[in-house]
Amino acid sequence: MTLAVSSVAKSFGDVAAVRDVSFQVEPGTIFGLIGPNGAGKTTTMRMILRILDPDQGRITWEGQPVTDPVARRFGYLPEERGLYPRMTVRATLRFFANLHGAQGPQVDKEIGAWIEKVALDEHAGKKIEELSKGNAQKVQFVAALLHHPPLLILDEPFSGLDPVNVRVLRDALQSMAAQGTAIIFSSHQMEHVEELCDHLALIDHGRVIAHGSVREVRQASGQMFVRLRVQGREEQVFQRFPELSIIRRGEDFWEARLPQGFDARRILQAALETGEVERYSVEPPSLEQVYVDLVGQPNNGTGPQANGSYAGYEPEGRQA
């Protein structure tokens, strides 16, 4: 039950959305797709679901090319949120379960269980148009996984959710994975990726520019960063090491990039001489740092193929 994406490419007219993307997702694992807007994440997902046919490369499930009946069993939460506004929560969930080929009393029972699990009990009889955006998003999330998909594909599942709902969804994802579901999700929030993913791929301009486990990706550059908190007197410590570039000056801690071959214990020594050391750690770069280093500007929202040309969806004005 492995999904294998091998060297797929897809162009829309002159615009190359995906140039060369390969990765594998094993059952029971969570795979993160990260990258700037327009990097090709959504196009890759659509190719896995057979909404689009790749121009090159192949996508296999259990070693066989993905066919329509197989793709129909996959669960999908598109970035483009949308439900029928006049249907009730229950009817919506039943419709999507049927659409994916699941029906019967068992499905109704599971709908009830999921409604409880994601705290939608008091809204179950309401119409979608009466729900808040976050609740509608939870309905759509449940709709994607009701039929026990072997593979669940989630495009930005956490965007627009409050922390409580993020936690609800995160727990649901982890329990799905524990039951053997293979999960792919994309996100711009690196803390979610670091927390949830077993493996990840960073895509930019339609190519995978980093992949592996979270740890592997973080360590790939070989760089190290020091994090320090000395009763608010971090600046005094770092002043003694002008060769360090400080990348974060937070209330909670400061962070600096260590040059190759720099002995970090010198910083600890200096810190101990300055005051009480509340925090000291030497780590590979955070995922966010890796992302920024590899992709460029943070929140690089306008890649060359961003929105407009081929996936002209407006993120604003989404229908709840």
Binding site: L49, R72, Y76, R81, G82, R318
Partner: peptide, 8 residues
């Protein structure tokens, strides 16, 4: 905007 799910 349900259409993407239908098409899938």
């Amino acid at each position: 905007r349900v259409v993407e799910l239908l098409v899938a």
